[in-house]
Design a protein around this nucleic acid. Sequence first.
DNA 1: TAGGCCATCTGGTCCT
DNA 2: AGGACCAGATGGCCTA
Length: 253
Amino acid sequence: MNSDSSSVSSRASSPDMDDMYLRDHHGDLVQKMSGEGLSRNGSKAGGESSKYKIKKQLSEQDLQQLRLKINGRERKRMHDLNLAMDGLREVMPYAHGPSVRKLSKIATLLLARNYILMLTSSLEEMKRLVGEIYGGHHSAFHCGTVGHSGGHPAHAASTVHQVHPILGSALSSANTSSPLSASLPGIGTIRPPHSLLKTPSAPPALQLGSGFQHWAGLPCPCTICQMPPPPHLSALTTANMSRLSAESKDLLK
DNA sequence: TAGGCCATCTGGTCCT
DNA sequence: AGGACCAGATGGCCTA
């Protein structure tokens, strides 16, 4: 799961390495506690001196135990943070595989930010376009609503149909040359950081939504789905994805 | 070999 | 008081 743990297995991240770290840092620890370390606390504010008194009452062994306990907590906290970071990497539109180097933390965060911005921009643009095309009489997301699905067995039976078929076809389209790509101002404002992503190979094309199926081959009974989708919509999201992919490539340089 | 990335330790600060 | 969070320091590993 945690790819870091495998690559870092030789490091001291494994719990059974605590002893080694105790030995490695033991000298430093003892030196700080018996010498300059504690007196440094005492030289601070009055509150610190009280702490110093409390600490001084503890035996050296107790202090070591306390230090180990604190270190362990901190280690666990950082491991949890790394797990969350791995979870973020998993949902990023980025190639995952043994041949691809893992995104660094900063690259993951920056790419995630760009991704969110891109999705937000795409969503707003799609809402606007659907509003323009259908005059706002028919919500673009009606198929997922309870009210609309009530009378249609296909709607009730299908749990795959989470987005409007038009959006689904847009998501699954392979066309990358769209005039709409130029009409997405938010996309153009997304700027990749420089030289933060590195990989031996370029990331594959993004294929979000490629698994979408329109009613599993059945025609959607609603009025919108019986209309042919506007041709320019078919490439909407793919264009955005291509943009994001290009940005990812820039990040990978 | 330099630089990037990372894990860990450590002390300080804030919060409950 | 104890725990969570944070930032600085340190050292190891890896790559260009």
